[in-house]
Lab assay of single mutants.
Amino acid sequence: GEDLPLPPGWSVDWTMRGRKYYIDHNTNTTHWSHPLESGPSSG
């Protein structure tokens, strides 16, 4: 998808195989999909 801006506290990194993933430092979790690309989340 597009390179959307990341929310505060997020960063992007790549695996050893070159796969892009996103790090949420607020909750110390990692995600394969961009936080703003996922569907609407409630709460």
Rank of each mutant, 00 (worst) to 15 (best):
G1F: 11
G1D: 13
G1H: 11
G1V: 12
G1Y: 11
E2H: 11
D3E: 13
D3V: 10
L4M: 10
P5S: 09
P5N: 09
P5F: 07
L6H: 01
L6S: 01
L6I: 06
L6Q: 03
L6D: 15
L6E: 15
P7G: 01
P7H: 01
G9N: 07
G9Y: 03
G9D: 02
W10Q: 01
W10Y: 01
S11F: 05
V12Q: 07
V12W: 09
V12D: 04
V12L: 07
V12R: 05
V12I: 12
V12T: 07
V12M: 10
D13W: 14
W14K: 08
W14M: 08
W14G: 04
T15E: 04
T15D: 15
M16A: 15
M16G: 12
M16E: 15
M16R: 15
M16D: 15
R17Q: 15
R17P: 05
G18E: 01
R19G: 05
R19F: 12
R19M: 09
K20Y: 03
K20H: 03
K20T: 04
Y22L: 00
Y22S: 00
I23K: 05
I23L: 06
I23W: 06
D24N: 10
H25F: 07
H25K: 06
N26F: 06
N26I: 08
N26E: 06
T27D: 04
T27M: 05
N28Q: 09
T29V: 05
T29L: 05
T29A: 03
T29Q: 07
T29M: 07
T30K: 14
T30P: 04
H31R: 07
H31Q: 08
H31F: 06
W32M: 05
S33R: 15
S33H: 15
S33E: 10
S33V: 14
S33M: 11
H34K: 03
H34S: 05
P35F: 03
P35A: 02
P35S: 02
L36R: 07
E37G: 12
E37S: 14
E37L: 14
E37P: 07
S38P: 11
S38G: 11
S38V: 13
G39D: 11
G39H: 12
G39R: 14
G39T: 12
G39S: 12
P40C: 15
P40A: 12
P40K: 12
S41V: 12
S41T: 13
S41K: 10
S41P: 14
S42V: 13
S42W: 12
G43V: 12
G43D: 11
